[in-house]
Design a protein around this nucleic acid. Structure first.
Lengths: 247, 247
DNA sequence: TTTATATATTGCATATTACACAACATTATT
DNA sequence: AATAATGTTGTGTAATATGCAATATATAAA
């Protein structure tokens, strides 16, 4: 596989910018990529010229440009799963009172492609485009258990409950496959519990994962079975729906 | 300004892919850019490797990859306007029953950065990331009237009501500045009317535009004044809110 | 204000890198 | 199975991106 160096560098700059909430300067970018300031300057100029980056004139730092938002729209609208799942997410939110999320596997992580927010003041908001680790989120575990992604090499610890042992995770995945749903019991964020189920297409192949997230004070261990039942049913319904839309 | 050729080519490929709902093949991309198949192949390989493109194995065609969605999130969350405007959009939708939209100027077009959908069956949906022309949308006219974007050279016609004469548009903008709101009376889509107002920050500088869109059967000419009043008030409230959040 | 420091942009020579052409491999079509 | 179309891999060539140095610009200090 031949890599086009300057394109790869440009893309790495985009990635860096996306992880820099306060933007980045030319020198910072050059250092991060171990390239010359001049090269960075020219690469950023090209990105800017095409709308992929933009300079905040007040801070003189570079941010991602609006063009990437326009790109993302075309990705999201292309996903038939998103279209089909929307009413089911809404229904999920209404029945449980918690925010409902939809995710697919991307780059070894769970990429959130849609969300229906709950009206509750205290709620778990996950922006579309968020990429969370797979091993410690309910949606991610579903994607691991039913998809064809390998178990990540390193299982980073986020909370005291995070599973960091590969064997433990493997056993968990077996159980998830058996029971048909996954639970994240404060394994990624303290005080947050999630439940997720798979959405499968007409061939039974995994299309994505959907579920709810809420504060553990509201999603108590006692309520989990009742909530799980709702989510499993919704997942089945969506999967059934997907079986008839193999366009 | 020195353009990095291969990066520019890569970005142009991304643009092409975003306008190709059914994806694109290597040869199509090569033809569109007037470059060799081999070059296109290598560029796409790099894009794919970094998650910016992906191959649909069933059709053997290339689409945009999930990475661009992840990028867009960082753009959207960075915008303080979006955060601040959310409750006002919701309120707008609830009071009018129509979909509420929020847009900023980008690349000479109106870029939709947020939306609150109405529950109505017949509603005007504008995906986040959509880029509409300025001269024939209510949000766009606001951005033209109060922002510092030049009037587009060519005013493309979309419907019989589209303003295509620069002088006419200039007069319209003067009136919009005076009255403080803009109306799109089936100038972009037949059967759709929109009303929009500006959102200004603590310096009185334009931050974005917000408004509603609905079918002209429901948003009749008679109802426009009543709806306009609501929107103008909401715009003032948001602008006031923005005056206190100059972080 | 002036000086000093940090940061960004432009010129330019070198060589690395991307390029086009072609051959090969793969997949689709007949 | 044969043919056509499309995608990928070599390879020599030359154009292009690169790094260094110098200039220009902006920021901080004096």
């Amino acid at each position: 596989m031949a890599e086009i160096q300057s394109l790869a560098r440009g893309l790495r700059i985009l990635n860096l910018l996306s992880h820099s909430p306060d933007g980045a300067s030319i020198t910072e970018l050059a250092e991060a990529l171990s390239i010359d300031k001049a090269s960075a300057s020219r690469l950023v100029a090209t990105l800017t010229h095409h709308g992929y980056a933009e300079k905040d004139e007040s801070t003189r730092r570079f941010h991602l440009g609006p063009q990437v938002v326009a790109l993302s729209r075309s990705v999201l609208t292309r996903l038939p799963l998103r279209e089909a799942a929307k009413p089911f997410l809404r229904q999920l939110m209404e029945k449980t009172g918690e925010c409902a999320h939809l995710a697919v596997a991307a780059q070894g992580r769970a990429l959130y492609i849609d969300q229906v927010e709950s009206p509750a003041t205290l709620r778990v908001n996950a922006q579309v485009g968020t990429m969370n680790p797979m091993h410690c989120t309910a949606l991610g575990k579903i994607l691991l258990a039913f998809g064809d992604n390998p178990i990540p090499e390193i299982l980073e610890r986020y909370t005291p409950h995070t599973i960091t042992e590969p064997q433990t995770l493997e056993r968990e995945l077996v159980q998830i496959r058996r029971q048909g749903y996954a639970i994240d019991d404060e394994e990624f964020d303290n005080g947050i519990r999630c439940i997720a189920v798979p959405a499968t297409d007409y061939r039974g192949k995994l299309a994505g994962a959907l579920g709810i997230s809420g504060p553990s004070t509201r999603m108590t261990r006692e309520r989990l079975p009742e909530l799980t039942k709702i989510i499993v049913e919704t997942g089945r319904a969506l999967s059934e729906r997907l079986s008839f839309t193999h366009s």
